[in-house]
Amino acid sequence: MSVDAIFQSILERKRSDIAPLVQAEIDAGTEISVILNDGLIGAMDVVGRQFGDGLLFVPELLVAAETMKTGLEVLRPKLVGSEITNRGTVVIGTVQGDLHDIGKNLVSMMVEGAGFAVVDLGVDVAPERFLEAAREHRPQVVGLSALLTTSMPAMRRCIELFEDAEIDVKIIVGGAPVNQEYADEIGADGYGSDAPGAVRLIKRLVTET
């Protein structure tokens, strides 16, 4: 079965091999949901476990996630309008006044690797831009990252703006100076202390919705 080949190309991180494999499978009439779940997402689940077990290094995880994304791009036209979706959409960014993005990028990458569509707004993102992106992409979860105690208040402003706009989305926060207590205080829906924690949190919130 060549869904296996798709699966393998992700495990082996063959970024340039995967598109034709996915295309061939579509042409062969394999069900889209099988390609997606057994091929792409299934492989990333294994990659995620390998990473969790310490077998993979971060840049290897990144390329595996990109391989999966390349495959997903080929599949995307078939997904539009169908019942099958990816696991959900997450908008993420580093808040206003803050340029730290190493941690946010890691979170983005792992969330994407776990099968979510990720819209990464970059750094120094104003609350209004988060809101705009939420309206445009209709994510289940918005992730805010802050590494500076002086940019943490921008998280609160963002949450307030979303509340005022009555947008139905879960907002989660993270970054070294942030903790659960602060997340609770500003009314965030969750806090993650690292990238795997962010993935677990997002999965939980998405199933809840």
């Binding site: 990473f51 290094f57 971060v58 941690g103």
Partner: peptide, 9 residues
């Protein structure tokens, strides 16, 4: 230096 397994600093 990036921690190879977690990305930590």
């Amino acid at each position: 230096m990036t921690h190879p397994r977690t990305g930590a600093y």
